[in-house]
Simulated assay, not measured.
Amino acid sequence: MNIQKIIDPLNLIYYEYNKKTETLFYDTNYANRFIELEFFKITYYLTKQNIQFRVLKDKSIEFSKKSFLLKKKFQKLLKYIENKKQNIYLLNNNKVKFAKNIPLFDIKYIKQDINFSNYDALIFSSKNGVLAVDSISEDWRKIPSYAISEQTAKLIKDFDAKLVFSGKQKHGDEFAYEILPELKGKKVLYLRAREIVSDFINILNSNGVKCEDIIVYENNFIEQTEKTLPKNSKIIFSSPSTVKYFFKVFSWNDSYTAISIGNTTAKYFPKNVKPIIADKTSLKACVDKALEVE
């Protein structure tokens, strides 16, 4: 039974499916009413489809028919201990289970004078864009918003803003083509970082969308005193900037494993480094992929 295919029509934002554990789990960073609404939507839908499932204590949803025997619990405990021992590194301050942090940059918001009523829609390609624009004004919340991924969409909903679209492609150029039919003939504003790597703006403007862009945040490099990492480390790169900053500080060791959050970031590695691409564009998916690698 292909669970992923079954749940795709639900367009879930807060819940993700882990194929390995046959479990739907939610992002614990967003404990709000929207998670509860999505939980009820999932369970109602599965019940109507006559699909067997069970709800665990943490409100994750398991599809495995196997019961939780003592042996299985013991195996889970051993796996947890094994995962805790691994040297998995995130190059930012975001906390994700089983990962250690090496913050190589911080985010600086850039104050701008924006009249949001001039636009039919807003486009966000990261959570930082959402946080930055909300520090400027709350007026943006009234304008229809288009998010590149579920991660960005969750934050937009948390602000009770007008989320109308969450992308499935999750990569800059592909996202531009994905939203083209929705935005043709409209005037839109892309709220972005100082440095961008996709051809996103040109794609929209060349295809009947009037797209303006405003820089609302930038990354600032943080120098590190630590210059080496343990052998066999698994390092997660969440943007082209993290690739650039990492190689300013560290030398690559052949025992390391690089995990890239997506295809765009993967293009920025040196030729001698072949990254493994995460299944989804989220930090948790990156950590999950690192845990899979032997």
Rank of each mutant, 00 (worst) to 15 (best):
N2R: 14
I3K: 11
I7S: 09
P9R: 07
L10P: 11
L10N: 11
L10K: 13
L12Q: 06
I13H: 00
I13T: 07
D27P: 06
R33C: 08
F34T: 08
I35L: 07
L37G: 06
E38M: 02
F40R: 13
T43H: 01
Y45Q: 06
T47G: 05
K48G: 00
I51W: 03
V55E: 03
L56C: 12
D58S: 11
D58Q: 11
D58N: 15
D58T: 11
K59H: 07
S60P: 11
S64T: 15
K65C: 11
L69T: 15
L69F: 10
K71E: 15
K72H: 14
K72I: 13
K73P: 06
K73Y: 13
F74L: 14
L78A: 08
K79C: 09
K79F: 09
E82N: 12
N83P: 09
K84R: 13
K84C: 13
K85Q: 09
Q86P: 09
N87Y: 04
Y89Q: 08
N92H: 10
N93G: 07
N94R: 15
K95V: 15
A99V: 05
A99L: 06
I102Q: 01
P103E: 07
L104I: 11
L104Q: 04
K108Q: 14
Y109A: 07
Y109K: 09
I110A: 02
K111D: 12
Q112R: 12
N115E: 14
S117Q: 14
A121M: 04
G129Y: 00
V130T: 00
L131F: 08
V133F: 01
I136H: 01
S137E: 00
E138A: 13
E138Y: 12
W140N: 05
R141C: 02
K142E: 09
K142G: 03
I143P: 02
S145W: 00
E150R: 15
K157M: 15
K157E: 13
D158Y: 10
V164A: 08
D173S: 06
E174S: 15
F175E: 01
L180A: 13
P181V: 14
P181S: 14
K184L: 07
K186C: 10
K186L: 14
K186F: 06
K186H: 08
K187H: 13
L189Y: 02
Y190P: 03
L191E: 00
R194W: 06
R194M: 09
I196R: 01
I196W: 05
V197R: 14
D199G: 11
F200R: 01
I203A: 11
N205M: 08
G208I: 09
K210H: 11
K210L: 12
D213S: 15
Y217P: 03
E218R: 10
I222E: 01
T228Y: 01
P230S: 02
N232T: 02
K234G: 03
F237G: 05
S239Y: 02
P240R: 04
P240V: 04
T242Q: 07
Y245V: 09
Y245L: 10
F246W: 03
K248R: 10
F250W: 01
F250S: 04
S251R: 05
S255R: 05
T257V: 08
K267V: 02
K267Q: 09
K267E: 12
Y268T: 04
Y268F: 12
F269T: 03
K271M: 04
V273A: 06
K274C: 03
P275A: 04
P275N: 03
S282C: 09
S282R: 00
K284R: 15
E292T: 09
